[in-house]
Each structure stands twice: as structure tokens, then as C-alpha cells.
Design a protein around this nucleic acid. Structure first.
Length: 289
DNA sequence: CGGATTGTTCTTCC
DNA sequence: CGGAAGAACAATCC
């Protein structure tokens, strides 16, 4: 389940691998994954990828000399981008796969982008929730407008965060998962951030003290920045663009840790798993108030 | 084999 | 009208 750190990991690797490459063909294996756009190949043919931007968990591809053509990519729960280069050469961006390494395209490959230098980018998505779809400038503007600020930014306004929480009567976990409030957190990092801030996921958002809210704002940014630094978390399906796992899995304190003792120093609690905001939720009943 | 899994959108309810 | 809660989506795992 890719969240902001996983998407950022993919974006950083991809822009080193595909920026400047010219699209020579597009194979669509499943129509739903391209929003049923039958003209996607025609629209992208001979376009050169300029760069890849990101807001929240959404990636935005732009193209050289094109001001009204973009490609929006969302991994949702099981989406993956795999880059394959027959020469094995990669300009940075970590490892790559050669054709011999992989069975790509495979069963869950939904779209294949082929470049003029014979390298390829495959979009895999087992559960078909993700997409790669064409958008114009106006559609990109609208998509961007739906995201709140990202806690990973240096100028994230913790005072604003505290004031906004005062208007929400939902569990704090539900508020943090709302991408239009703050962007980037998903089920894993919400649980981790709440544990770091010592706040119970079920607490009503408007009941947090200022101290708790400020701690939570910092914890949210910290946990995601630390994860980005080690290539994200692989819990179920996440792989980076070279097919490798992320390393933050080893640093998870509560997610998936139910039944284990709380890792906080001087805390003797046991991590519990409950359902909150419709999601599997992990916390320590002893130190999270 | 029923239930759990999750990011986002849609629907329903109050 | 708008917030809140829950269903829907899809495929697989246990």
C-alpha cells in the first residue's frame, strides 16, 4: 500500500530513468488502467518525458514542449512501476532490470510504455484500482486543488494544523487519512505517527491538546521523511522501480506489530490491533493517551 | 470459504 | 448544505 514515501521513492527513481526519453509505443493490456482512453498511444507517441512531479500520492508526468499534456499516475493499493532496460545501463536511480531478469510483461501488467532507446516502463496493478491517465492543464489544476499541505515540507504550519483539528469531530486517525486535509499519510504512517506522538487513534480530533497536535504534526513529517531516506516501506505489495523492497519495514514500531511489546523505552504495554476509521489500526494502550 | 486487506470515490444519512 | 459514516471497487491471502 504505497503512501507518500513509497510514491516519492518511485518518483525519484523514475525521473532518473525516464526523463528525456521518447515514447515510441504504448501497449494497453487492461483498458480500465488507462481510464478507458483508446487514444492514449496516439496522444503520447513521440512525446519526450520532461519530468515527474508529485502531490500527495499522485504522480504527474510532464512532456517536453507540451503545456497542455500530462500523465497522472496513481498506484492506489497494488500499483507498481517497473523499468526495464535491455542494456542494463541506468543513469543513477539505483538498480534496473534487464529483460533477462524479468517476465515482464506478466499477468498483472496493465500498461507498457516503450521508449525509442528500447527501454520500457511497465505499470503493474493486481487489483486494478490504480491508473495512468492523460490529463490537460486544467484537469491537473483541479486534481492538485484537492490535496491539503504535506507534513514533510519544512514550512508545514503546525499552528494551522492544530486550529483545523478543532473543526473535526472524527477520530484523529480519520482526519489524518483525509488527503484534502493533509496529504500523504496512509494507514501505515498514520499509525506510526500517532504512536510517536503518544496519541490514541480513536481520540476525537478536536479534543487533542495543542501540545499533542504539534507533536503529531512533527511526527507525521518525521516518519515520512525517515522512510523516504531508506526507500519506503514494503509491507504487502510495494516494490521500487527495480523490483526491490523498501527498507523502512524494519523500522515500523506499531504497524503489524500487534501482540508484541511496545518498543518505547520504559513502556511495558503490548501493541493492540483494533478497527478505527474503517481500517486495521495498531497502537499501544499504555503510552498512547 | 467467509472475512480481512486498503486508497479513494461514491452514496446515504442526519 | 455539509459533515460523518459506510459501501463500493478488485483480487488475493489466510
Amino acid at each position: 500500500m504505497p503512501e507518500l514515501p513509497e510514491v516519492e521513492t518511485v518518483r525519484n527513481q523514475l525521473r532518473q530513468k525516464v526523463n528525456g526519453k521518447k515514447i515510441s509505443s504504448v501497449e494497453v493490456f487492461h483498458s480500465k488502467s488507462v481510464n478507458h482512453d483508446i487514444d492514449i498511444e496516439e496522444k503520447l507517441l513521440n512525446k519526450k518525458i520532461a519530468d515527474i512531479d508529485r502531490i500527495g500520492k499522485l504522480m504527474i508526468f510532464s512532456f517536453e514542449k507540451e503545456t497542455d499534456l500530462f500523465l497522472l499516475a496513481h498506484l492506489k493499493m497494488t500499483g507498481q512501476f517497473f523499468f526495464v532496460d535491455p542494456t542494463g545501463d541506468v543513469d543513477g536511480g539505483g538498480h534496473s532490470m534487464t529483460a533477462a531478469d524479468t517476465d515482464l510483461p506478466m499477468k498483472h501488467t496493465r500498461v507498457g510504455f516503450h521508449f525509442s532507446d528500447h527501454s520500457s516502463l511497465y505499470f503493474n496493478d493486481m487489483r486494478l484500482f490504480g491508473y495512468v491517465k492523460i490529463a490537460n492543464a486544467e484537469e491537473v489544476r483541479i486534481a492538485r486543488s484537492k490535496f491539503g499541505p504535506e507534513p514533510i515540507t519544512k514550512n508545514f504550519d503546525a499552528e494551522w494544523f492544530y486550529k483545523k483539528l478543532k473543526t473535526r469531530k472524527t477520530p484523529i486517525k480519520a482526519a489524518l487519512l483525509d488527503q484534502s486535509f493533509v496529504a500523504g499519510l496512509g494507514n501505515i504512517y498514520v499509525d506510526e505517527a500517532l504512536w510517536r506522538a503518544k496519541v490514541r487513534p480513536t481520540r476525537r480530533a478536536d479534543k487533542l491538546t495543542k501540545k499533542e497536535a504539534l507533536a503529531l504534526a512533527s511526527a507525521s513529517g518525521d516518519v515520512m521523511n525517515e522512510s523516504i531516506a531508506v526507500g519506503g516501506t514494503t509491507f504487502q505489495h510495494f516494490k521500487d522501480t527495480g523490483g526491490e523492497n523498501g527498507n523502512f519495514t524494519d523500522y515500523l514500531k506499531v504497524f503489524g506489530q500487534q501482540g508484541k511489546s511496545c518498543p518505547r523505552k520504559d513502556c511495558n504495554g503490548t501493541i493492540k490491533k483494533i478497527r478505527c476509521a474503517g481500517r486495521g489500526t495498531h497502537y499501544c494502550p499504555a503510552c498512547q493517551k
